[in-house]
Structure formats: C-alpha cells, structure tokens
C-alpha cells in the first residue's frame, strides 16, 4: 500500500473526492476475513477470493496497489482500446459527461494502475482535451450558446466553459458601461433570490 499518496489539487478538494468516488469493477484475489459484508450477494463472513465487486477508486486503489494486492481491477470500458478509436476519430462528437462526469480527473487516477491500457491513457486524455478545447472555447465566446450545454460537458471542460463565459460577460459589460461600477455581489443576489422563492412558496 502506498503510504505517501499525494492529493491533487489538494487534500480538501471536493472535486477530487467526488472523482475518486467513481466505481471500478474489481476481483478479490485473497481471502479477507470478517469483511464478507462488502459483497451484498453472499452471506459468508469472509470475503472470498474470486468475488467480483464494484468498488470506488479510492478503495480499489489501496487494495490493488501494493506488493501483495488484495484485488485486481479492470479499468472502465471508455478508457479501453475500442473507445480510444472512437475518441481518435472525433472527440468533439461525443457527449463525454455521459461516459463520466469526471472523465479527465478520473482518467488520471486510473492511469496509476498497472494495466496494459493505462500506459497510453494520459496521452489519450491530453489528445482528447486538445481536440475538444477549441470547441469549448468557441462555445464560451459565443453569446448565443445555450448555457445548458454546460451540463453536457465533463467537469474540467465545464469549469473552463463557465469561467470563459463569465469573463466574456464582464468584457462586454466593460465595453458597454466601463469599469468602476458597484454590483450586488453574487452571493447576496443568490441569497435574495432564494429568499424570495421561499417567500412565494409560503404565500401559496
């Protein structure tokens, strides 16, 4: 087990915690006493070798990464050879968030495993990102884009899209009106909105 695991971007990152929660299919290799409840289908007290489990990445990783692994893992199909061809053909045509909301982040985590498909994974992610980046930027720059498109993007691209959109809005505001204005801060505006909606609900 790797004792020194570094956390990216930091230990408290919500996105990283959610990305490492994504599931992998694992196969138990050794008998683990008194943890039989991890497999819902069996009633035995111990976890038996050969049991197939769907485990979150963080657990799968610590069970797999050691000199003497407890479980073997199988990487998700969308990081495998057949899906790689789809990505190579046209990455822009795919709704990546349907594959995984944390496609890039999770991919980087998966790449840490010793699996034949993992070696090429970082390269694949980079290539996918490069070919999709122009598209995302176009969307962010174009004001006619439907903002709902953000929900179809994986997390990394969504963040880029939203901040790109925001800076575009700020630029337009600056062109039209200039700087030096005071605005109600977003936090407070949202707070007011929410208060108003609960108020209306109560009225009903």
């Amino acid at each position: 087990m790797s004792l020194c695991s570094s956390y990216k971007p930091n230990y408290f990152s919500i996105d990283d915690i959610l990305a490492t929660e994504e599931r992998l299919s694992c196969k138990v290799l050794q008998k683990v006493p008194r943890l039989g409840f991890m497999d819902h289908s069996s009633e035995s007290k111990d976890l038996k070798p050969g049991t197939k489990l769907e485990l979150s990445f963080w657990l799968a990783y610590s069970m797999n990464k050691s000199k003497d692994p407890i479980a073997s893992i199988d990487i998700p199909k969308y990081y495998k050879e057949s899906y790689r061809e789809i990505l190579n053909a046209d990455a822009c045509a795919i709704e990546l968030s349907k594959w995984n909301t944390y496609f890039y982040e999770f991919g980087l985590h998966v790449a840490k495993f010793d699996h034949p498909d993992c070696e090429k994974l970082p390269e694949l992610l980079l290539k996918t990102f490069k070919s999709r980046f122009r598209l995302v930027m176009d969307w962010a720059q174009n004001q006619d884009t439907n903002p709902m498109i953000a929900s179809q993007l994986p997390m990394l691209e969504r963040t880029i899209f939203l901040s790109g959109r925001k800076s575009k809005e700020q630029l337009v505001y600056w062109f039209k009106i200039g700087g030096g204005g005071i605005k109600t801060t977003e936090l407070i505006a949202n707070h007011k909105k929410r208060k108003r909606s609960t108020f209306i609900e109560n009225e009903r």
Binding site: F12, S13, I17, Q30, L59, S62, S66
Partner: peptide
C-alpha cells in the same frame, strides 16, 4: 489484509469530514 482495508476506509472518512 482486513486491517489494511479498514484503514483505507478510515482515511477516506477522515478526508471527507475534514474537507
């Protein structure tokens, strides 16, 4: 082995609460 698994869960729980 079971200790190792439990320890991983402990670490995870701790991380979630602190985060």
């Amino acid at each position: 082995l079971s200790i190792k698994v439990r320890h991983a869960v402990l670490k995870r729980d701790k991380r979630c609460i602190l985060a």
